[in-house]
């Protein structure tokens, strides 16, 4: 009995505990990301932002969550019920499972798998299903149009992201996220070597998470709010949480691939006092700030311009960069053994 406990049940229990240790702070971060977004945009537009619920409006995200929780769940009569209910759950779960392979510090990772980058790529490519299912199951024109736009957009920008990742992989010589960060300790951050790719990645993750200025799927002026127009209460909240958790996940991937993950900017005294996970969080926050900054400053792209940017600009540029990177590495004999 005790052997069964030590051998089987305890590791499972430990796994659940570690998962909660990631998911709970993540949900808290999502809640306060919405607060930060409102405050930063307000500051950029010379407004106050939320300021009445709690000191400086700090309890506003909790109040919003409670409000959504107590609203009535409406399922349209003509909706395809099973798929309609499954869609927000799929979106939310997929936004969480990616975190399993993210290293927060040296050795601080739930699952240190050898194909970490591919896993993240697979999870993010599944994300489109939540949206397509929602759009189709709602049985509503606006929702379906939003879903169609969204999936075309996500499929297009995934290709750009995949090609950008390849040049980083060639330099690091591994698909393991921890090893990619450790390679940057030796080579210097890849944002220095692959700066054009960093810019392409940054713009592509805006499009991949359907954020401004590429938020055509929920273009409120022409599609009401797109794929989630028929959703209410917690079902809507799950989409919302999923979108923000995805933003944080993409920022985390970006900081691992280009900004050296948990590494301090310089490996000398005052910087090394701060622990790795804190550096990681700071880098994620910096990229999230860019997300919000773009939302406050840029007008929405037109759909054909969005597609042109993905297929005719980013795709050839990323392909060219792969050729340049691999050519240079072979010529200078820098290839990782």
């Amino acid at each position: 009995m005790s052997e069964l406990f030590v051998g089987t049940i305890w590791p499972l229990f430990e796994l659940v505990l570690l998962t909660l240790l990631i998911v709970v702070p993540l949900l808290l971060a999502v809640a306060y990301l919405t607060y930060a977004e409102r405050k930063i945009i307000a500051a950029m537009q010379l407004r106050q932002g939320p300021m009445f619920v709690g000191p400086y409006g700090l309890l506003q995200p909790l109040a919003d969550g409670l409000k959504l929780l107590f609203k009535e769940t409406v399922i349209p009569t003509r909706a395809n019920k099973g798929v309609f209910v499954a869609a927000p759950i799929v979106t939310f779960v997929l936004a969480l499972v990616g975190w399993a392979v993210i290293p927060f510090g040296p050795g601080l990772v739930l699952a240190d798998i050898n194909v970490g980058v591919l896993y993240l790529f697979a999870v993010s490519s599944l994300g489109v299903y939540g949206i397509v299912m929602a759009g189709w199951a709602s049985n509503s024109r606006y929702a379906f149009l939003g879903a169609l736009r969204s999936s075309a957009q996500m499929v297009s920008y995934e290709i750009a992201i995949g090609l950008v990742i390849i040049s980083v992989l060639i330099s690091a010589g591994s698909l393991n996220l921890s090893e990619i960060v450790e390679a940057q300790a030796r080579h210097g951050w890849y944002v220095l070597w692959h700066f054009p790719m960093f810019m392409i990645f940054l713009v592509s993750i805006l499009a991949e998470t359907n954020r401004h200025p590429f938020d055509l799927p929920e273009d409120e002026a022409s599609l009401v709010t797109g794929y989630n127009v028929e959703y209410s209460s917690m079902a809507f909240a799950l989409f919302f949480l999923g979108e923000y958790a995805n933003m944080i996940l993409m920022s985390a991937i970006c900081s691992i691939l280009f900004l050296g993950g948990w590494l301090p900017p310089l490996d000398i005294a005052p910087f090394t006092w701060i622990p790795g996970p804190v550096w990681f969080a700071l880098k994620i926050s910096a990229i999230l700030f860019v997300y919000i900054w773009a939302r406050a400053t840029l007008p929405r792209y037109r759909y054909d311009q969005l597609m042109r940017l993905g297929w005719k600009v980013f795709l050839p540029a990323a392909l060219l960069w792969i050729v340049v990177t691999s050519g240079a590495m072979v010529a200078l004999d820098l290839l990782p053994k």
């Binding site: 194909v115 591919l118 790529f121 697979a122 599944l126």
Partner: peptide
């Protein structure tokens, strides 16, 4: 590797 490629290519 095959598992991830299956998901990326076929499902994604």
């Amino acid at each position: 590797f095959l598992a991830m490629v299956l998901v990326v290519v076929y499902v994604g």
